[in-house]
């Protein structure tokens, strides 16, 4: 079993743990965290694929850099949507 294979399996397991969380948690912030864990798993799979060749595959690493920035942008937008929704609900409830 090589290092690449070990972390390929770890990446898949992380993705599945994230999916399990997504299926079972209710609070919106927890769900976003679960999606981010799935992302971490997918990136780990890509990093592990990149390391199987010598020299390390730069194409996969570049893809992961791109993915990280896109993931944080999407998370920021989703969190703002969640905050706005909570804000609106609170205002509606406070009105008679």
């Amino acid at each position: 079993m090589t290092q690449s294979l070990l972390f390929l399996v770890v990446g898949v397991c992380l993705w599945v743990i994230g999916l399990y969380g997504l299926l079972r948690v209710r609070h919106v912030i927890r769900r976003l965290i679960a999606v981010n864990i799935m992302g971490g798993g997918a990136f780990t799979v890509m990093v592990a694929i990149a390391v199987r060749t010598d020299p390390v595959d730069p194409v996969f690493q570049a893809l992961v850099v791109t993915g990280l920035v896109v993931a944080v942008s999407a998370t920021a937008f989703a969190l703002r949507l969640a905050s706005a929704e909570a804000h609106c609900t609170r205002r509606r409830e406070s009105r008679p």
């Binding site: 290092q3 981010n36 592990a48 990149a50 690493q61 992961v64 850099v65 944080v72």
Partner: peptide, 23 residues
């Protein structure tokens, strides 16, 4: 550890740092 120092830097700053502050 997996030979990706670029990604480690980006993940420490973006994935852990900025996402943490956002959350």
């Amino acid at each position: 550890r997996l030979g990706a120092p670029d990604l480690a830097l980006a993940e420490a700053a973006i994935g852990a740092g900025l996402t943490g502050v956002l959350l």
